[in-house]
Design a binder for these strands. Structure first.
Lengths: 239, 239
DNA sequence: TCAAAAGTGTTCGTCCTACACCCATGA
DNA sequence: TCATGGGTGTAGGACGAACACTTTTGA
């Protein structure tokens, strides 16, 4: 922790990469940008960019998120640090250390396509062939993390609009985990967890036309789930 | 993700910081180094250092760990990325982005005190007044993470020597969580989890002189715990 | 009147908790 | 023979899985 000569070491570029996930039509989608130049020209990549000199990684991530999605207000959106990728050869041109984030969005708008990227689009998770750089790995790590977080935290509401039905909340779990859940049990479990959701009095929504109107809920104040909402056990699930 | 001019942006220094935790005499201890120069001269700090040009953060962390602890072989030790700290003012002299790691050690040797640091010592967790920089926060984050990981993973064995008793394993949980656990139930829970521990046939150890000799176990091959080993519920536990 | 989706009730088994109790060792 | 820590047994309760059933809407 000494030897603080600013130029004694090779300078590193520091970037943020964003794994922005959302649910569209019951399927998990990822925000990706198409690369216009080498390396990986024509490949899809996670949105991201350089840290500005007076900016933390969290601020940079939120700024990039606003630029890429075109959302006016990203201050309330769920953004969380995933981990940092620092392998020396992860970018063939120079040494880039990247702090990766996951972001969860409800009902996203079409991305502006502006900002840095030539083209930004929502693509179904897993459909975009090999991504540029080590972004396949980052995206897979993000998916793993989200799946695990659903068990122990209330992040699922971050995928939902401000007011949502329990059926929509359950769809989040089923889509991310890729498993079906028993509706009555899911309902009881969620309602039994204080602070997970709170009812919107008197409100109801017709979901998809048919069927009984569903009561509406808002996200509660709790952030962690006790006890956890465990996914159906498959043996030897990865971390 | 364009504009890759290496000098278009202010260069960042990238470091690793290590929260090295261990158990000594039933209490959680942290490896700390004493700072010899400003800023924070005389304060304790987490060990750490700069990334070398051809080195990932993981490699740098393992190298620093070896240097600071004086251990000959750190290849098998548990090392895990915590998160990255990038607030612009976290070091008053220059812009330093630091990738923090947690390391768990069994029965550590006295640190060499060599390497970079003037003095390196094991201090009881929470006893070292305010640490330098944002290291208090990093250490607290590390403690939170470890506590949560004990519930869902097998990391507890990383605090234990290669062969250990179930009583020692239970002490890990009790020390990190700060709560007492029921011994019979803990035992059943651990043994019922396939791959958590495996018995060392015929071996036994006299623990502390008195009492019945305890059977010895080795760490198993599993990394995750299903179902999790939940700590006794206190309402509204932080993440 | 039927299909679809929301919501309620109930049963049954499993797991967790708690405590009582036995075993082997050193002092 | 007592204190100490390891190890086993067991009764009771809480919780979750599975599934039957009712309710309310649109077609």
């Amino acid at each position: 922790m000494q030897g603080y000569d600013k130029y004694a070491y090779e300078p590193f570029a520091v970037t943020v990469d964003l794994a922005v996930l959302t649910l569209r039509a019951g399927a998990l989608h990822v925000l990706l940008v198409e690369r216009g130049q080498e390396p990986y020209a024509g490949h899809w990549a996670l949105p991201g960019g350089f840290l500005l000199p007076e900016e933390s990684a969290e601020r940079a991530a939120r700024r990039e998120l606003a630029e890429e999605t075109g959302l006016a207000d990203v201050s309330g959106l769920h953004l969380e640090q995933l981990r940092t990728y620092s392998e020396p050869d992860r970018d063939p041109r120079m040494r880039v250390v990247s702090v990766a984030f996951t972001a969860l969005l409800p009902e996203p708008p079409e991305p502006r396509g502006g900002g840095d990227a030539a083209q930004a689009r929502w693509l179904p998770y897993g459909s975009a062939g090999p991504l540029a750089f080590d972004h396949d790995r980052i995206l897979a790590d993000a998916h793993d993390r989200i799946g695990a977080q659903l068990e122990n935290s209330c992040v699922a509401t971050a995928f939902c609009p401000p007011e949502f039905t329990l059926g929509e909340l359950q769809q989040v779990y089923e889509t991310v985990w890729g498993t079906a859940l028993d509706r009555p049990n899911f309902r009881r479990k969620v309602l039994a967890t204080p602070g997970f959701v709170e009812p919107v009095p008197g409100a109801a929504r017709l979901t998809g036309g048919r069927g009984k109107p569903a009561a509406l809920y808002r996200a509660g104040t709790a952030t962690t789930l006790h006890p956890p909402l465990l996914r159906p056990s498959r043996e030897g699930r990865p971390a």
